[in-house]
């Protein structure tokens, strides 16, 4: 009796745990979860709209001065950090591109001599 229940439990557990592999084997769906946005642009927009909302609440008197300042400065800080991250990413991407270009040129130059022949 106990052995039977135990086996059923083990079977159920195996099904649950191994399901992702089964699914990917038989359904071959494209990645089920949408990739989170990488550039932080959506987050940045969210923060800006949050600040606008804060200011609206502050104007209508729903939010206390101290709370308003505190939350606004927090969001402002976050936005600045995101901006900086964006710029750093951009720079990195630019550098990578430049390197790619340089490498392509470096590689391309000697063959270009050859290439003229072929």
């Amino acid at each position: 009796m106990a052995g039977l229940v135990g086996a059923a439990l083990a079977l159920f557990v195996a099904l649950v745990v191994l399901y992702p592999f089964v699914r990917s084997r038989f359904w071959r769906e494209e990645s089920a979860t949408p990739k989170p946005p990488q550039d932080g642009q959506l987050e940045l927009d969210g923060i800006f709209s949050a600040i606008e909302e804060l200011e609206r609440q502050h104007r209508s008197g729903e939010l206390l001065e101290a709370d308003f300042q505190e939350q606004r400065s927090g969001y402002r800080q976050q936005a600045a950090l995101l901006l900086r991250e964006q710029e750093e990413r951009q720079q990195k991407a630019d550098q990578a591109l430049e390197q790619e270009v340089r490498r392509a040129r470096g590689v391309a130059e000697p063959p270009s001599a050859d290439g003229a022949v072929s």
């Binding site: 800006f48 200011e55 800080q77 936005a79 901006l83």
Partner: peptide, 18 residues
Amino acid sequence: PVLDPYLAAVDARLSSSN
């Protein structure tokens, strides 16, 4: 100081949207 230009950019965008 590193963050200052970015904070300024944030403020600029905020005041423009206001």
